[in-house]
Design a protein around this nucleic acid. Structure first.
Length: 498
RNA sequence: GCGACGGUCGUCCAGUUUGGUCUAGGACAUCAGAUUGCCAAUCUGGUAACCCGGGUUCAAAUCCCGGCCGUCGCACCA
């Protein structure tokens, strides 16, 4: 690889701030809350292209349907989903030093007494009193139990009717399932996908876009017949895809097929989607040798999951969870059917049986993925060339090429602006005549622009330009009339060759 | 949320110990001009900051209080 130094969180943070990939929300105000970040121009462009890639490699590839649902959903949705019952944690606060503890855990730890999830606050208070529990930090007394929920509550309309910002995008997919299945003439298995924002009131948001209170998810919910998880002909096309499975401290690399035969994966349905996911991340330019699928233990996995794999990537801040792959069984549809009193069963057309589908999901964190791509693409060499290069794939780079006149004299500016105008609606490109040519090349490299088009004196004679390659710094002469084809090919080839 | 430490141009840093000489300095970046004309060259000039609020004082970037944010640790993490 080019250059020795590993990129760090600080490098990426600095680049993001200086070059407008992302930055803190409301930053001109002192009361700007933590956990909210904005994408700037370069960040948005890259994020949009990431989502496009996700659509190509997963949604379209697999014939899924995509929806775009509301971010605010009714209270009933979250009663059904379990977020209100399971995620209002009882907490106790020390009156003296203000330390906060999970009441149920603390009581269990100190007394061995089990606190059921739905125990009333008064009963919990009584237990604390009975055992005379005090703050372990300062021996102060505890105040009475209060509730903390990770969801943001909102009041709808003048009556302030209780509703919540969704803590995961998938809930809209679940509640929309019957209509989407009908209107899209659905057949099992059916993938329903969604990109959008989710909201969690994290206690301690940290590390910029790695742990946000408002964040982007790209979720895929595959609705399937639980009796046919191994009846999946399309598995053949991915069976030789290599997967890196992590278990008991070590990573095993083997094909999806082998993983199935060794029972490291439960069925073809899961193996198929993990393989697709792996292929997708290969195309993002993340170094897949630094990724793994980690099977979660019973203690780690979410309450709705019967088994779960996390797709993780190694970065300078440790292993980062990018995608949660959960087998949610019929938990969600079952609960929504029960609470809403709608029958959510469908006919599996393949054998005309009526079933409540099971769900396997790929829940992707977009912000973290963007970060991981940036970090794995960042290279610098301070000693030799003093270059910082973001080696983004051309189809993910914020800009595909810059148009630069070698000098501003002899009509070169005008010629270059002409070329820029010709392509600006078709490609992400921009014009720059400020500073020396070398400086302009460096600026492009730093935000990952893979090509530079330079207009020189020869251009004025024969209408050719030089195209410079970011990674090699090599140049070739291309006729202006061939530029469109050149960039279309470049995009296509970079995409095909992976 | 708790604890420790910190917060000065876009970025990094000096200045805070001992209040005044700070009308806040430098480097890089950026903008304009000159010059060169294919890899961060040079010269000239410019833009640009003391996190917010309150207090002490003749005087606050500097001291005090509160808040916010950041880093780390604990806790949390669907």
């Amino acid at each position: 690889m080019l250059y020795g130094k590993m990129s760090s969180y600080e490098d990426i943070m600095k680049l993001a701030l200086e070059r407008g990939f992302y930055f803190p929300s409301c930053e001109i105000y002192a009361d700007a809350p933590a956990g909210f970040w904005e994408y700037g121009a370069n960040g948005v462009s890259m994020k949009n292209k990431f989502i496009d890639l996700w659509r190509r490699e997963l949604v379209r590839h697999d014939g899924m349907v995509e929806i775009d649902g509301s971010q605010i959903m009714s209270k009933s949705v979250f009663i059904a989903s379990g977020h209100i019952g399971n995620f209002t944690d009882p907490i106790i606060k020390c009156i003296k030093c203000s330390s906060i503890f999970r009441a149920d855990r603390y009581i269990l730890e100190e007394t061995g007494e089990n606190v059921p999830e739905r125990m009333a606050d008064e009963d919990i208070n009584a237990i604390i009193k009975k055992h005379g529990l005090r703050c372990p930090n300062c021996n102060g007394e505890f105040g009475s139990v209060s509730r903390f929920n990770m969801m943001f509550k909102v009041g709808i309309g003048p009556g302030a009717e209780e509703a919540y910002l969704r803590p995961e995008t998938c809930q809209t997919i679940f509640v929309d399932f019957p209509r989407v299945f009908k209107t899209m003439r659905g057949k099992l298995p059916l993938g329903i996908a969604q990109v959008g924002k989710s909201f969690r009131n994290e206690i301690a948001p940290r590390q910029s876009i790695l742990r946000l209170r408002e964040f982007y998810q790209a979720e895929i919910e595959v609705f399937c017949n639980p009796n046919k998880l191994d009846d999946l002909p399309k598995f053949e096309e991915v069976k030789n895809t290599f997967l890196r499975l992590y278990d008991q401290g070590s990573i095993t690399e083997l094909t999806a097929d082998e993983a199935l035969r060794k029972s490291l994966l439960p069925n073809k349905m899961v193996a198929y989607y993990l393989a697709l996911l792996n292929r997708f991340y290969l195309k993002t330019g993340i170094d897949v040798r630094r990724t793994r699928f980690r099977r979660l233990s019973n203690e780690e996995k979410a309450f709705y999951a019967s088994f779960a794999f996390d797709y993780e990537v190694e970065t300078s801040v440790g292993w980062l969870e990018l995608v949660a792959c959960n087998y949610r069984s019929d938990y969600d549809l079952n609960r929504h059917a029960m609470i809403s009193k709608h029958n959510l069963e469908v006919i599996d057309p393949s054998d005309q049986t009526k079933i409540l589908p099971h769900i396997f999901e790929l829940s992707m964190g977009i912000d973290r993925s963007i970060y991981a791509i940036l970090e794995h693409s960042y290279f610098e060499d301070r000693e030799r060339d003093d270059r910082i290069i973001l080696k983004l794939k051309p189809y993910l780079a914020p800009m595909l090429f810059g148009v630069l006149p070698l000098m501003t004299k002899h009509g070169l500016s005008e010629k270059a602006q002409n070329i820029y105008s010709k392509f600006k609606r078709e490609f992400d490109t921009f014009y720059d005549e400020s500073g020396s040519i070398g400086r302009r090349y460096r600026r492009l490299e730093e935000i990952g622009v893979p090509f530079a088009v330079t207009v020189d004196k020869i251009t004025m004679d024969d209408d050719t330009v030089t195209v410079r390659y970011r990674d090699t710094m090599q140049q070739e002469r291309v006729s202006v009339s061939q530029l469109r084809q050149f960039f279309q090919d470049a995009l296509f080839k970079s995409y095909q060759n992976i």
